[in-house]
Amino acid sequence: MKKLSARRRHPLAALVVLLLALAATGGLYAALAPQKAVADDTQQSLAIEEGKKLYAVGCSSCHGMSGQGSSNGPTLVGVGSAAVDFQVGTGRMPAQQPGEQVPSKKVIYTQAEIDQLAAYVASLGPGPSIPSKDDTNVTSANMARGGELFRTNCAQCHNYAGKGGALTNGKFAPILEGVSNKHIFEAMLTGPQNMPSFPDSTLTKENKRDIIAYLNEVNSSPSYGGNSLGSLGPVTEGLFGWIFGLGALIAVAVWVAAHTTKAKKS
């Protein structure tokens, strides 16, 4: 004790005491703190935990630390897991830069990571969830009815053959070829970006399956007329006909008239 007492005025004494006090407080808390009522180790909450970490790194700068949104990105409370699965699964999110429309690009998250992100965002508030395998199974869907529904609800923006089209101020409706059944379903369900949503209450799951079956048929059926020139109808076809068809005829006429038949070439 004498030794300790002798050093009580040592310059480091205060520091040692502080450390001891901190260690004691921490240790006591660890020993005495109440245990959590429920063991928080279910699959779902693990996914939410992991998703939250991914969210904090990849999404929070625009959508806010808790998904409340900011001037750079809308709130994600209530958008549901389907919206996350679509936006991240098609590479639209994370966005490269702000603008009128965020285009699809290379997907940078694995499906497992996307599921975790989706679980986290879904935990923020109730919203449409990722469709099940049965929801997007179109083997027994009615593609003729799907065609009708597509022309009523979708063709105005996405073109009658699903080739996409222009909207205002640089926005556009994207081409629907090469999009998975699940992502088409989710797009109808959630209404990504400027697309309006078509919830199950107004466009039933069966309707959605019919539309997907129609699109699969349109995208897989061959073009009997050769190059479809974008399926844009008379604009591209007329342009092609006028430039290349009439152009070839004019070229032949010029060639004929430029070559004299006279024996004496002048």
């Binding site: 529904l149 009523t152 609800n153 209404g191 309006p196 949503s197 078509f198 919830p199 209450s201 107004t202 466009l203 039933t204 309707n207």
Partner: peptide, 21 residues
């Protein structure tokens, strides 16, 4: 009448941001 389902529409069917004919 909702043109897709041929059923009369109720207010709760129509979500914010949705489009129905």
């Amino acid at each position: 009448i909702n043109q897709n389902t041929n059923q009369p529409l109720r207010p709760e069917d129509v979500a914010v941001g949705s489009l129905t004919f």
